Amino acid sequence: MQSQQRLLVVLAHPDDESFLCGGTIAKMSERGVHITLLCATKGEMGRRMGNPILTSRETLPGVRVRELKSACKELGINDLRFLHVRDKTIEFESFDLLEERIVKVIREVQPNALVTFHEKYGGHPDHCAIGRAAEFAFLKSGDPDFYPDPVFPAFKVQSLYFVLWHAFYDEWLKENGLSRITRVNIAGTLQKKIRALRSHRSQTLAVPELWGNQKPNLPFLKESEYFIKGNLPTIIEETDLFQTIESRG
């Protein structure tokens, strides 16, 4: 059995990783966790192209891929992969095919934990669609009869988490309470998160406060990031994505 902990992050667009869970990713990386990011699209339909404009619609996909690679270096992401789905069309892709492709990555990477979007609280059709597919892949990857593969056998991921964007925190709390929330303190890696966000220049130059000399007072740059437990006991209060895994031995 592999000794190094592994985290698979399945998201929709370049910059999702930095905005939503960059501090947590950096914190896990500092602890020696091997991190794979599976990004569904290249963000080619993004509305922002810099401020002032630094790219065109034709060159934007290449720009955003380069920006994502730079952000991955800042956050300590070891392995970057793409599904090459067209931006803003994930919900129209074959669900079975998406699920199968994510299952194959799970079986190859063999992560201990998987982070993705919540189907309801994703906030964007692409987010919700890739989150739904990733959740089903999480459930099916350990079934040897589901898309059997002679190279990469069935593998069951131990823990599933959904990113909880600040804009949906109060809504989740009102409907579900605190029992399924994992809060990760990212005070020690907040600067890495800021540098990763700055790597996404085409998207963040339009946020002048992010580029100032003072500490940005932005809602997505607080000292905590939040996750919804997808499959863990709600009686356990978690402050770390691997806390429950390690307590189980």
Rank of each mutant, 00 (worst) to 15 (best):
V115I: 15
E74R: 15
Y161C: 00
K120A: 08
Y147N: 11
I102E: 00
V184W: 06
H84R: 13
T89D: 02
K73S: 02
N185L: 05
R81S: 06
H166Q: 08
C128M: 13
D145Q: 15
I77P: 02
K156N: 02
D145V: 07
L173I: 13
L160F: 12
F92E: 04
C128E: 07
S159L: 06
P125S: 05
S94F: 07
F136V: 09
D149P: 01
Y161I: 03
T182L: 11
G123K: 04
R107S: 02
L139V: 10
Q158W: 07
A187Q: 14
H166G: 00
K174T: 02
A129T: 01
D126N: 09
W165M: 08
F95N: 04
F162V: 01
F95I: 09
P150T: 07
P150I: 06
P125N: 08
K156A: 03
H84T: 06
G188N: 15
L160H: 05
L83V: 04
G131W: 11
L97P: 00
P111D: 01
L178T: 15
A187G: 04
L98P: 02
I194C: 02
V157W: 08
R81F: 10
L114I: 10
N112Y: 08
A133W: 10
G123S: 05
A196G: 04
V105I: 15
H84N: 12
V157I: 09
N78I: 14
L178E: 13
V157D: 01
K174P: 00
I90P: 01
V103D: 00
F162T: 03
I130R: 04
F152G: 02
V85K: 11
V184S: 03
F136Y: 13
P148E: 07
N112L: 04
D143V: 12
V109W: 09
G142W: 06
K193D: 01
L190V: 10
Y121K: 03
F92Y: 14
E74I: 12
G123T: 06
D149F: 07
F117V: 05
K88G: 00
E91P: 04
T182D: 03
K156Y: 01
V109P: 03
Y169F: 15
K104M: 11
I102K: 08
F146H: 13
F92M: 13
S94L: 10
K140Q: 12
C128L: 12
E100L: 05
F92R: 14
E175K: 15
E119Q: 14
A134E: 01
Y169E: 01
K193P: 00
D96C: 10
L164R: 01
K140T: 00
F136T: 08
S179L: 12
